[in-house]
Design a binder for these strands. Structure first.
Lengths: 114, 114
DNA sequence: GTGAAATACCTTGACAGGCGAGGTATCATG
DNA sequence: CATGATACCTCGCCTGTCAAGGTATTTCAC
């Protein structure tokens, strides 16, 4: 089953931050990494991706710099800041809380397993 | 930790359907049930609640009728339809898929546990 | 008896995030 | 030299959420 993007909403920035926790990255690469990790079930739309990068940079969670490619298209690399790392940990906790709450509420619909 | 409503987005209707799977209910009651189930960590805002009921009814997932209270404020009761039950099961599966995908993507930020 | 709080419903307009559609530019391959 | 992949960007629409406002009834303390 593919992923309803309505359900991803609010996690886009956290997903990007998670990628940048490992290493600096550029938009196209980050999106391909997401596509691979999810076995093709999910990828961010470009408009979503780039506006999310913009928001994260405006918030001071990431900083950007142009790569020095001598060949191929230019790449804007992003690096996560300390503030971004802190934000990632907080957002992840918030996600875990929301996840538990939703799991509990959706389980209400099951006849027996309450 | 309270629940970031941005992360609930897209699950509101499923949460309501889950409540109605058990028994008919009215808006105020459904919201109090949610509040109790989550230990006060989450409740729907009224505007969100009633617009969600409206959407569900327009979609044929629920039907409504006025209760015959002889005392107290009038109550509009909602009953889930067969279509609504089917929709609940589908939405729940979609949630589980999304949940697994997000869990995996957010785990990327952890240094070791990949 | 009267004022506050709880119950119970509803609507309007603004806001924010996601995304379709469009654009630019480079490079490899056939 | 055309196509597809890489790589970036922006504009305007859509949808779900919510603050703020409204109505009406009942209960309970004072």
């Amino acid at each position: 089953m593919s992923v309803a993007s309505e359900l991803i909403r609010g996690n886009t920035e956290t997903i990007i931050l998670a990628q940048l926790m490992k290493r600096d990255g550029y938009g196209y690469m980050v999106n391909k990494a997401i596509l691979n990790l999810t076995g093709g079930r999910f990828e961010l739309k470009e408009a979503t991706l780039y506006t999310a990068f913009r928001r994260l940079e405006d918030a001071g969670c990431i900083v950007s710099y142009w790569g020095d490619e001598t060949t191929g298209a230019r790449r804007r690399y992003y690096s996560i800041t300390d503030l971004g790392k802190e934000s990632y940990r907080l957002r992840k906790k918030e996600w875990e809380t929301a996840e538990a709450v939703i799991d509990k509420l959706l389980a209400e619909g099951e006849g027996e397993s309450i």
